[in-house]
Structure formats: structure tokens, C-alpha cells
Simulated scan of single mutants.
Amino acid sequence: MNDALYLGLMSGTSLDGIDAVLAEVSDTGLRVRAHAATGFAPALRAELLALNAPGAHELHRAALAANALARGCADLVNRLLAQQDLSASEVRALGAHGQTVRHQPGLHDGTGYTLQLNNPALLAELTGIDVVADFRSRDVAAGGQGAPLVPAFHAAVFGRADADVAVLNLGGIANLSLLPAAGRGEPVRGFDCGPANALLDHWHQRHRGQPYDAGGAWAASGTVDAALLALCLQEPYFAQPLPKSTGRDLFNPGWLDARLAQLPMVPRPQDVQATLAELTARSCAESLQRYAPQGPELLVCGGGARNDDLMARLRRHLPARSVQPTDVRGLPAQQVEAAAFAWLAHRALERRPGNLPDVTGARGPRVLGAIYPR
């Protein structure tokens, strides 16, 4: 089919806000035409963060938060369309990931699940655009992790015929896609490496009162605490075999506090921040070295690609590799995940699989997403 316009929406585990991408998508590629972003109101961000843990009246609160998220998404979509002088009828569909508040795909009794807060019916009502949502559940129903879903998209836009490529998304959680050269006939692989901005942002907010450490300046001012880093690296998740995925269910403030409590003396706050940055860089670098030791180039996307300190730490751990933001390949780091959900919406409408069983562990390829007509 000819290129059609799609919108992709992403609000990730870093809880830094909503990104919207307007893109031309076809079976052969994707080209971003416009991007817009908005932050969360402090009250909504606090509520979305609180809903990652059990609490009073959480079903009622989750429904209200989903409504607020949908309205924020609709406002951003309508603003983006107005800026581009487009009508809703000119957009074929909108892919809306929603806000992950639980991710438990690997429960041993087969009752695993993943939960993203969203109200796609309200989003369709407010935008007049077909909405595709709930992308992860079908993969989980087929025995998969439901995450990460972006490796298939990474392969479509960043894969090369002549060389291996690795793509690292540094959102709230870090996830890695390994894209072998097309001619080798090897499968794409991908998995969550561990924490990224989720813990960095939490610690910065707790001690500095700001939602994130701009450029990683505060982390750069500290010194890595070797004892704390060692305790963090003992987390069994890092040694867990593939497929695997994780989230705030594991890497949350309680996880960090439990390790701080084992130290004879809590380090200076800036030293904890430096240690968390080092944890992210080291766990990502070791994951790459373990599964792709031959040294493909590493493209970095997500908010962490704008963290100068974190990027410098990655380069120190990977001295033989090129480590660059995805901007160098034509897709800015902050737009990648939203673009992925525009692409996944296209896959859903064309009834084409959106998952990769070699990544998620699902029993086979599946069409992902539920469609909410305009």
C-alpha cells in the first residue's frame, strides 16, 4: 500500500511526559513528519507513580488517571494536527501505548499479565481517529514477556544489510535490541537490561526536588560507591537468561532503599546518584558484551541519550565501539519509541505480526493491539 499517516504516542516508565510522532508509514519504512511533547502535570505524574504500587481505592484512582492521560494525549494530538494543518480524517490510525503500572509476565503459575493505564475509547472520541492500544497483552497471552516490543521496529529502521547494529533505549528501564546483518540470517534479539532513568530520576527528585538530573551533572559531581554498586549488581535479574523483561515492579525506590540499608553508612546523595548512573552504564555494557561480543555500533535512544554523564560512562565501558544517539541515523532519540507505536499501529491494521518470538518468548508471531474505531 502507499504511505499513510499514523500517529504514535508514548509515555514511558520514566514518567517524563508524553511524546507524539506524526509519521508516514508503509510496509517498507517510516518517515517522521512532526513531533510534539508535553510534560505531565505534577499531580498526574505523582499519581501515575503511586499507582505502580498497591494502594487504597486504586481501581477508582487508576480509572481517573487513565482518563486524565487520555485527555492529555488528545490535547497533544490535536495540537500537533493543528500545527501541521491536518484534519483527523487524514490520519489512518493512532498507536497509543498507555502508561505501564504493572508488568508481571513471568508468574510461574501461568497467570502472568502486563497492565498499561489507558482509555483508548475516550482517546478515539476526543481525536476522531481510530486508536490501536493494548499492544502487549496478546504476546503475553501467547506465553511471551510482552516486552520489549521495539526490537522489530528497530530492525525495520536501523537494521543494516552489511553490519550488525545494537540499539539501546534508555527510558525508565533500559532495553537492548541486537540487530544482526540481514545477510547473516540470524534472528533479532532484545531484552530489558535493568534500571535506567526510573531510579536516577527518583533519587534526584528526592534530594534535589527536580524531576531529573539535567545532563547528568549531579551524577558527574559524585563518586561511585563501590560497596553500593556491588550490592546492586548482585540482583539476580542481571544474570537471568533470555527472554526477560522488567519494570518498576522490581527496580523501584524500595529496591534501592533495601540496598542502602545494608551499608554501614549511607553515601552522600550525589555519590548514590553517580552509583546509579554507573549501575545503568555497566549493566547495559555487560549485556551488550555478553550477547554481542563482536562489537556492533551502539545507537542510543530515549531520554538517557541526552544524559551526557551516562553517555560518557557507556563510552568508557565500551571503548572499542561507536556509541551515538539515534539522531546520527536520522531519527532523533526522543522520537524513537513514539514512532515505534505508530509503526505497530500500522502493523495491526494490516494484520501483520508486531512481536518477535525470539525476543519475547511467545509461541509465535502475533498481531498486536486492539482497535477502537473513531
Rank of each mutant, 00 (worst) to 15 (best):
P195K: 11
F153W: 06
V272I: 09
C301K: 05
A362G: 13
L250D: 06
F153I: 03
A4K: 07
P195H: 07
L299Q: 14
L117R: 11
N197C: 00
V300Y: 03
A50F: 10
T223Y: 03
N52H: 07
R248C: 02
F191E: 04
R315V: 02
V167P: 15
L229S: 13
C193P: 00
L344H: 04
A68W: 12
L228A: 00
C232E: 06
I371G: 06
G95E: 02
A41H: 14
N78P: 05
I18D: 05
D308H: 15
G95I: 05
A133R: 10
R79M: 05
G106C: 05
G330E: 05
G361T: 09
A46T: 08
P187I: 12
Q262L: 09
S14H: 02
A121D: 06
E235F: 08
F341P: 05
R366N: 03
G247W: 00
G216W: 07
L22Y: 07
A261H: 01
R208M: 08
N78Y: 04
A338R: 15
L49Q: 09
E337P: 11
Y372P: 00
D225Q: 08
H60F: 10
A182E: 15
Y6N: 03
V157Q: 11
F251P: 04
S26N: 04
N307E: 06
G361M: 14
R136D: 13
T360I: 10
R102E: 03
R306I: 00
N252C: 11
A152G: 12
Q83C: 00
C232G: 13
Y237A: 10
Q334G: 04
G159M: 09
G12Q: 00
L229W: 03
D308P: 01
L5H: 07
E350M: 14
R184H: 09
A320E: 08
L49R: 10
A333R: 11
A152H: 15
L15R: 07
D271W: 07
A74E: 11
V359Y: 12
P180W: 03
D201S: 02
D109F: 02
H57E: 11
L176D: 08
G106V: 09
Q84S: 09
L368V: 08
L9R: 10
V336P: 03
G216P: 14
P365T: 01
A274E: 08
P187H: 12
G55W: 04
L288Q: 14
V165A: 10
D130E: 07
H103P: 13
A339S: 10
A345R: 02
R321Q: 01
P319I: 04
Y113I: 05
N52Y: 01
V367G: 15
A320R: 09
R184L: 15
G8E: 01
L233Q: 06
W218E: 02
L318N: 09
Y113L: 15
A88H: 13
V77P: 12
G295P: 01
A82F: 02
A56E: 07
D139E: 13
R321F: 03
D257Y: 00
Y212H: 13
R321V: 05
L59R: 12
